[in-house]
Amino acid sequence: MNHEPSQLTASRPDFAAIAASIPTGSSVLDLGCGDGSLLRYLKETRNVRGYGVEISDANIEAGIRNGVNVIQADLESGLSGFEENAFDFVILSQTLQATHRTEPLIEEMLRVGRECIVSFPNFGYWKNRLQVIRGNMPVSKDLPFQWYDTPNVHLCTLGDFEMFCDKYKLQILDRHVMTGTTNVSFLPNLLGSMAVYRFRRVS
């Protein structure tokens, strides 16, 4: 055992928010699943059946060690191996901002899953805004990279993401905004450092 679920939620506060909207026994596809911690957490707390997609060798080893199904693939080269509506939920946890071709990926997520869940750091968080006003790119716990070594190429604010959903006719079913482990409901685009959205295509 690498770590207990409680430790997992402490290290990744979005896990609990994601799990909250997943009924027991659901099928889940976790894109960019890292070391498989989220899948393992969902398996242990929600008895989900699922797969993670991951590109890094180290994470494939870690995912297998965590006892979850991991498929080594570049998620941006397509999810063609997965059938239409194969999953109840397709999750993109803290990965959206690092995807290059974001639109086709979300399109694929909507194809293989009935609902999608994405979590991402809110670029509109006041501390980020302050750093930009001061003249620097934001560096923080949620955005731990320097401008020259960041994998993040498509950062956005809550407002940006909701405009995206509007443009592509995506129905937002649920939104959790938080700073650390605290839920934020007042001025979320300013006071929330991280967001979890659940959405589907407008039917």
Partner: peptide, 11 residues
């Protein structure tokens, strides 16, 4: 995957 088997894949 299509048969919903547990599977891990390493390249």
């Amino acid at each position: 995957l299509h048969n919903k088997r547990n599977v891990s894949y390493a390249e």
